[in-house]
């Protein structure tokens, strides 16, 4: 099992009471800011982590996730996940500390002494210049985000069954 970080965009901002409901539904591993849910979830796969969060969001009446966000603020572990094996978290840590490579790794945006958060775009830029075969955007997350957007459009149009039929037939 791995801890997966992802951000879901909601169709509206939950009330304070609804935030409590979301916590009780199992989103005690998330931070809720406006209409964004930032989740760090243990699961066997990113898909499993996302789908379990989607179900929990629906515990609040008429609340649902309508897309994913490409959060630019990442820890090195978050960045390694999104790089899909191009670099491990340890490799990024060595680069960040100047223990490997020619230097120039972007400085963190925030460094609390215990937690360092970087700009993912800056990390990608650095790795591309270093010759790493990075894929941008993350194809897996981009796909899931598009699916959520599609479902949102279908639900808004009252055509969810149409989409299901198309998926089964394709």
């Amino acid at each position: 099992m791995e801890t997966w970080n992802f951000q879901l965009r909601l169709n509206r901002i939950p009330t304070d009471d609804e935030i409590d409901t979301l916590y009780e539904a199992g989103l005690d591993d998330a931070a809720i800011s406006g209409a964004v849910v930032d989740v760090d979830r243990e699961a066997d796969s990113l898909l499993e982590a996302i789908t379990s969060a989607l179900v929990q969001i629906r515990s609040v009446s008429d609340l649902r996730a309508i897309g994913m966000l490409d959060d630019d603020a990442v820890t090195l572990s978050d960045a390694a996940q999104r790089l899909h094996g191009v670099r491990t978290a340890e490799s990024l840590r060595l680069l960040a500390n100047g223990e490997r490579g020619a230097g120039g790794f972007p400085a963190p945006i925030v460094d609390t002494g215990k937690i360092r958060v970087y700009s993912f775009i800056a990390i990608l830029r650095f790795l591309k210049l270093s010759g790493d075969p990075v894929k941008e955007p993350d194809p897996e997350r981009a796909l899931y985000g598009r699916v959520l957007q599609l479902l949102h459009e279908a639900q808004d149009a009252g055509r969810t069954q149409d989409v299901e039929k198309l998926l089964h037939a394709a």
């Binding site: 005690d28 931070a31 809720i32 760090d40 925030v110 937690i115 958060v117």
Partner: peptide
């Protein structure tokens, strides 16, 4: 929102720091 008893303290701390960033 900051929870009193998050599931994982370190992850909730990271979420706050991402917000700061």
């Amino acid at each position: 929102a900051v929870f009193s008893t998050p599931k994982d303290d370190d992850n909730h701390a990271k979420q706050i720091v991402r917000f700061i960033a």
